[in-house]
Amino acid sequence: MATLGASEKRIRWLIAVPMALLAISCIYPLVFAFNVALKSKRDYILNRFSLVADATFDNFRLAWVQAKLADYFVNSLTVTVGAVALLLLVSSLAGYALASLRFPYRRAVFLVLLAALMIPVQVVLVPFYRTMIATGLVDTRIGLILAYTAFFLPFSIYLMTAFYARLPRELIEAAKIDGASLLAIWWHVMLPLGKPALFTLGILNTLYCWNDLLISLLVLQSRRTLMVGIAALRGEYTTNVPMLAAGVVLAALPIVVIYVIFQRRIVAGIAVGAVKG
């Protein structure tokens, strides 16, 4: 697309100023929380908004140990890893079948899986909770893993199907002529070929699972995931703001690291949903 004329160069820089301010506002809250987290309780009360003078990591230790964020961290990690692994296996298998195998009701199955998009958890809150109780999955990490898989599956299947549908058919046909069984083709051909899409989905689903509050609140009771823990921390430690801030920073840290490393993958994954890639 044409860029602005040379005489408008000044305007370009003028436009960049409010855009830069907006960008700063996107970073500021987490920096603010980090600054608060480094203050002692006393320092926070005396100099609430100033930059930390005498940094202490006590709040992080307190949040990690005393407020049990370490336990919640392990819970979140367990269910996120489990759910993402399951999501990738199930969506790759289904995407392979939907994109390249001929079987009856293929299109109907694809539509049913996509139609689940119109049933977010809020729409089935009560019966979903009852289902968890009836199946004995309530308050188990397996239950939460299965729930995450069920609720984040349609987008993954859509993406895998679209990805596999664009692969040249000869690849699969060649494998078939070699006499490979269909399951072996999936494992040895489709899974490796699907790596770029699976990688993107792995990151996106990690974000969804790690960040979830509602499904986790419903399924787990005696255990907490990190986000449930942070939400509860607000009520339990209202007076200790620096420790709450430390907890928030700790809970956000893995996501910040993932975003900094995989920013381009995440950005591409979001765009693929909107435009045929």
Binding site: L89, V90, S91, L93, A94, Y96, A97, L98, L101, V109, V112, L113, A116, I119, V123, V124, P127, F128, R130, T131, L146, A147, T149, A150, F151, L153, P154, I157, L182, W186
Partner: peptide, 17 residues
């Protein structure tokens, strides 16, 4: 191959609906 996906979606979303 689509059965695991179908089962999860039916059990946790469609039947509850």
């Amino acid at each position: 191959f689509v059965l695991p996906a179908l089962a999860l979606v039916i059990v946790f979303r469609i039947v509850p609906l």
